[in-house]
Design a binder for these strands. Structure first.
Lengths: 189, 189
DNA sequence: CATTAAATGAACAGATCTGTTCACAATGCA
DNA sequence: TGCATTGTGAACAGATCTGTTCATTTAATG
């Protein structure tokens, strides 16, 4: 078995939690759908919460890897890469299995800020901010942290709007807004 | 009893669902915390889902009333009122009971778009868009619908960012971004 | 092949979930 | 006062929840 049973479980649990929600997906459903026995699941994780935390750690890694890889592919310059974030997001939104951001949903279902699951979601957002800040700095922004916060705020807005599904192209809207704000942030004075 | 038992239940259930989440708050907890017997709850609502839908209808009304009233109080001109949306949001974010947008959380816990709870969340966002579009038109925007989409995207982004709690002043960030975008949307050509 | 480690299935515990039943109490109104 | 409506409490049903137990089977390793 190349991928360990544990890794296989975490990856499959990710898919199910993402599709169904954390409270809605019970351990019996996970067992039935992953084909991994409950006994094994509880041997690897003492509680459901520990499994969820492992799922979120995997998601953090996979999502940031995917996003920045895609941004690099789509944009030659740092400025282009910032804008390409919204092209990457649009691709994500258009997949049939799209169901919002896993961390937004996690913090929604575990709304207390000191809950480990909520705290991990905050950490994910902080890591994103760090990476986008670096990109904004490369692009020559005077206040790269401010620009990064702006771009990420657009990202969260687009993610939520795309999921609720009442608008046609939130990624496109966010991209157009980003263009204006990036131009302003890179202006020579 | 001036407010009917039904209304009292819906209002109190709103508070509890908002604080705990929809799946996390069971009917027994609701009964214990509202002081209304389970028998009565199920006499007024055949299922938990029907109660949740009533809660969301009340929230839709109360939230839009609060927001637009506050925007009118804080802003003398249509342009000011658009910006005042973010001042109102900041006030909301600073309350200790703030726990994100009830409709974002509802669509997160009921992620399928054809689910009545998800559909009602989408309707709430559509009504908001209609009202902000009208305001953008009054302000003289050439494309009021586009500006309204932009402002609401900022709103959703700020709401989510404020709840996850990794940033200091998402409402202020969104306000500054809105100012740039409003200026651009109201430019004479 | 033999030994060890990992995974399985199925039953079980006890709590909690949604929703029901029913005898009784409180309330509103004539 | 008398009657109808509304609400109550507590027990109950049956499903599902997280987590455990254990005898057995499968897989990896020497």
């Amino acid at each position: 078995m190349r991928p360990s049973k544990r890794d296989e479980l975490v990856q499959k649990a990710l898919t199910i939690f993402y599709r169904e929600g954390f409270h809605a997906a019970g351990m019996d459903l996970l067992s039935a759908e992953t084909g991994i026995s409950k006994t094994t699941m509880f041997k690897h994780f003492r509680t459901k919460e520990e499994l969820i935390l492992a799922v979120l750690r995997l998601r953090d890694e996979q999502f940031r890897n995917w996003l920045f890889r895609r941004m690099e592919q789509l944009g030659p310059t740092p400025r282009d890469r910032m804008l390409a974030m919204f092209d990457a997001l649009r691709e994500w939104f258009q997949t049939p299995e799209y169901r919002s951001c896993m961390f937004i949903k996690a913090s929604g279902e575990y709304p207390q800020r000191d809950h480990p699951i909520h705290a991990l979601s905050a950490e994910h957002k902080r890591l994103l901010h760090r990476q986008i800040t670096e990109l904004a700095r490369e692009a020559g922004a005077v206040e790269p942290e401010v620009l990064a916060r702006a771009l990420l705020l657009l990202k969260e807005g687009a993610i939520v709007t795309a999921h609720i599904g009442h608008e046609v192209d939130p990624a496109g809207d966010a991209r157009a807004m980003a263009e204006v704000l990036i131009d302003k942030a890179l202006e020579k004075h």
